[in-house]
Design a protein around this nucleic acid. Structure first.
Lengths: 306, 306
DNA sequence: CGATCTTACGGGATTCGTAAACATA
DNA sequence: TATGTTTACGAATCCCGTAAGATCG
């Protein structure tokens, strides 16, 4: 036979009250029910748990040994259903999200900080990765959702736009390009170009724009971190294309920056999740926070939903 | 509604196999049974635990959050019944015993050491106390049993004789008493007498003997530890009466010792337990060990059973 | 003899399993 | 269309509660 909760509760109550009758009152049941529940439990574990006469009920040695474990299990069950209800209510839980480095460094820290202040029993794990890996993580359910760019042509994934981020050419202040007010991408081909890693969202946007234009120059350098690209520019080794909202660009005041006239050269940032995979309550709350954060955050061009 | 184990097992199995059908095979039940068990559990906790289409079953965020707790509870249940069976079989458990200081210092250490070598999963807690407090502990079920002297006239307690221990007079080697081969208790009255605390078993034996003789001298000193009594004797402050099996007496080779001719002056040592309180399997094994130990131990006059 | 646990037994609720309905890749 | 989940429903089971029986103080 199979031990069940009622049996454990019966055992715990009888042990606590030292009497079947009193325990049955506390449990709002009859004492005969308790009698058989305890008997069943004793049968299951193959040992007598109480020494009982008509007048007195006391734990056997085995019963005494087992009691702490039983009490702990009952406590954990209560904690479990309590916690589950809290999770459903969105006041407890654990969220795992992935985000692009540029987002992880700008909006997210403040969002997380405000969020955990409001929901101290929700823990958040942030994984900053490049766009390609992020897509994998979302597909494999390694994260609840991601903050990233949309993956074109992948209808396994849902995307909700939160903000757009314009690309800009970054070059030394004395560079010939400084004369233009606004640039076209083609104008860069005459100079050595520093581009981001092919796995990055920035590179995807640039490659897409180049494909449209039909011109596909080899980059002079290909780097993983924006700070590296900026370092190379500073050293006079070329021109790079980076999103203006990134912390790296914002803080590179010693370099010149020109926006592009092309509309293609904007990176779309939003919530990326598996299609059909419903967000948990905690994740939903966090997503709502994110929307507000993008609106409040200078440097990002917020977009409301759609 | 009340959550039960079947539901938790169903949840865990479906989560592990990612399929109701495969889980039902593993659990030797039908998949419709699992379906309703999971549905009930979801009802109980008020949250959907799986996102399921006909083709795929995967945990929701809530389900993912609760899974570890559920797995842990199931593990603990298994551990509980496993452990309980071990306890019934006498290969695991916890024994609490009380013993007189003289026993705690002589036979018990070796007994315990041999016992835990044979039963490493049984833990033993030894409490050394004086006879009076020991009786209380046994009565109040604070210990599984005790190794002590019998309490006369208390039929709440069961006593099984293990050994007898003869009392001896202890005095400096140059003391007048050295001339006698064997003593009678009366011979001590002429000297200052050092007796043990009234709560001790030694004192009870002496008092009982004195009561029979009808002579009740005031002790010159009354001490709690045998080593103190021996110290006082060494200092020439009087004569004392101690059990010969005690470590203190054995090692006091600089003092003289004379046995008494009175049979009353023997202390009976044995297992003391609540009447009706059955010993657990572990405690029974230990008691069996004790019997052997007393036989093997030099200094104690073993007795087999009753 | 009274308080309290156990046992017996009938009725009610729960749960199971078969089979049909339903949904998705 | 095929696989896999849900739903429906009759049947078996389990469990509770009443009441009688047993036992200890």
């Amino acid at each position: 036979m199979n031990v069940n909760f009622q049996q454990l509760r019966a055992f715990a109550a009888v042990a606590r009250y030292g009497s079947f009758t009193r325990a049955s009152q506390a449990l709002f049941t009859t004492q005969s029910a308790l009698s058989s529940r305890v008997a069943q439990l004793e049968e299951s574990v193959g040992a007598r748990l109480f020494d009982r006469t008509t007048r007195t009920v006391r734990l056997t040695a085995v019963g005494r040994d087992v009691r702490p474990a039983v009490e702990r299990i009952l406590g954990e069950i209560d904690a479990l259903v309590g916690r589950t209800k809290d999770i459903s209510a969105g006041i407890a839980g654990r969220i795992v999200i992935a985000a692009l480095p540029s987002v992880s460094a700008t909006v997210l820290p403040q969002t997380i900080s405000a969020f955990v202040r409001k929901y101290p029993r929700i823990s958040i794990i942030l994984r900053d990765e490049l766009a390609e890996r992020i897509a994998d993580m979302v597909r494999n359910d390694e994260v609840d959702f991601a903050v990233s760019s949309p993956i074109v042509g992948d209808n396994q994934l849902d995307f909700v736009l939160l903000a757009t981020d314009h690309m800009a050419a970054i070059f030394p202040k004395r560079h010939p390009l400084r004369k233009a007010k606004r640039l076209k991408l083609e104008q860069l081909v005459d100079y050595p170009v520093i581009l981001m890693d092919r796995k990055s969202s920035v590179r995807r946007v640039v490659d897409e724009a180049l494909r449209v234009k039909g011109r596909l120059p080899q980059p002079a350098y290909e780097v993983a971190f924006m700070s590296t690209a900026i370092g190379l520019v500073r050293a006079g080794l070329g021109v790079t294309v980076l999103p203006t909202a990134s912390l790296e660009v914002q803080s590179a005041s010693d370099l010149a920056r020109r926006n592009f006239s092309d509309r293609v050269l904007t990176r779309r940032i939003g919530i990326l999740k598996r299609q059909g995979g419903s967000l948990g309550p905690a994740a939903q709350s966090f997503a709502a926070f994110l929307v507000q954060s993008f609106k409040a955050h200078a440097g990002w061009h917020a977009s409301d939903g759609r």
